[in-house]
Amino acid sequence: MKKEDITANEKTVIEFLKMLENRKSSNELDRFYHPEAQQIEFPNALTKQTTTRSLQELKEASEKGAKILSKESYEIKNLLPSGHTVVLECVWRGTLAVPVGAIKAGGQMVAYFAQVFEFKEGKIFRQRNYDCFEPFS
């Protein structure tokens, strides 16, 4: 994919992932999420039921995650734009600050994410996460 071929929304998703990898504060989410944003996470190894979060709830989850992870990275496999929507396929890796299941602190969790980002006014308005974690129990 050539740089000039990237849409503004794709660029926002890429910048969003870079921010997640380096974030210092949950307030950094404000740059990317619409104030009325809604994120839906479908059931997975960590989230047993479909969960819907507002921007404030995303910030709270970000703060909790910062206590569990010492580092995280996102490897983009596919980024597919369609109108005001971008679909992301990526591999997420998180280095643990505390043990989770059979993975010790300093160990790594791996998940395969498909995420659908819908944009409004240049920001993420709706996000749906389909997360598939490698076993950690």
Score class of each variant (00 low, 15 high):
Val98Met: 12
Glu36Ala: 11
Pro35Thr: 00
Gln49Met: 11
Gln39His: 08
Thr85Phe: 06
Ile6Pro: 01
Lys120Gly: 03
Phe125Ser: 12
Leu17Ser: 03
Gln39Ser: 12
Glu75Phe: 08
Glu57Val: 06
Thr12Ser: 14
Gln127Arg: 14
Leu69Thr: 02
Ala114His: 14
Tyr74Cys: 01
Val91Glu: 11
Pro81Ala: 14
Leu20Asp: 06
Ala114Asn: 14
Leu80Trp: 03
Val86Leu: 12
Glu60Trp: 02
Ile124Asn: 07
Cys90Asn: 13
Ile40Ser: 13
Leu80Ser: 06
Gly101Trp: 09
Gly94Pro: 01
Gly107Phe: 04
Ala45Glu: 12
Lys120Trp: 02
Pro99Thr: 09
Glu36Tyr: 06
Glu121Phe: 11
Glu57Gly: 01
Val87Lys: 03
Lys77Thr: 12
Val86Asp: 10
Lys11Asn: 11
Ala111Glu: 06
Asn22Gln: 13
Glu63Tyr: 02
Ala105Gly: 05
Asp30Val: 10
Arg23Asn: 13
Phe136Leu: 08
Ile103Glu: 00
Glu72Ala: 10
Glu118Asp: 08
Glu57Gln: 14
Lys123Gln: 15
Arg53Gly: 00
Pro43Gln: 00
Ser26Gly: 01
Val110Asn: 00
Asn129Tyr: 05
Arg126Thr: 07
Lys3Cys: 05
Ala105Cys: 05
Thr50Ala: 11
Leu79Gln: 01
Thr47Cys: 01
Leu96Cys: 03
Gln56Leu: 09
Leu55Thr: 05
Val116Pro: 06
Asn78Trp: 10
Ile14Lys: 08
Ser62Gly: 05
Trp92Pro: 02
Phe113Leu: 15
Phe117Glu: 08
Glu21Cys: 03
Thr50Ser: 10
Gly101Asp: 08
Asp5Ile: 01
Lys120Ser: 09
Val100Ile: 15
Arg128Lys: 15
His34Trp: 02
Glu10Asn: 02
Glu15Lys: 12
Leu29Thr: 04
Lys3His: 10
Lys2Gly: 14
Phe125Thr: 04
Gln56Ser: 07
Ser54Cys: 04
Pro35Glu: 00
Pro43Asn: 02
Ile6Ala: 10
Leu29Pro: 03
Leu88Gln: 10
Trp92Ser: 07
Pro43Glu: 00
Glu36Leu: 09
Phe32Val: 11
Gly83Thr: 07
Met109Glu: 12
Lys71Val: 03
Thr52Arg: 05
Asn129Thr: 01
Ala102Asn: 15
Lys77Trp: 06
Asn22Tyr: 00
Arg93Asp: 12
Leu69Lys: 04
Val13Ser: 10
Gly122Leu: 12
Ile124Trp: 12
Gly94Glu: 05
Thr85Trp: 03
Leu80Pro: 02
Asn27Phe: 09
Leu96Pro: 02
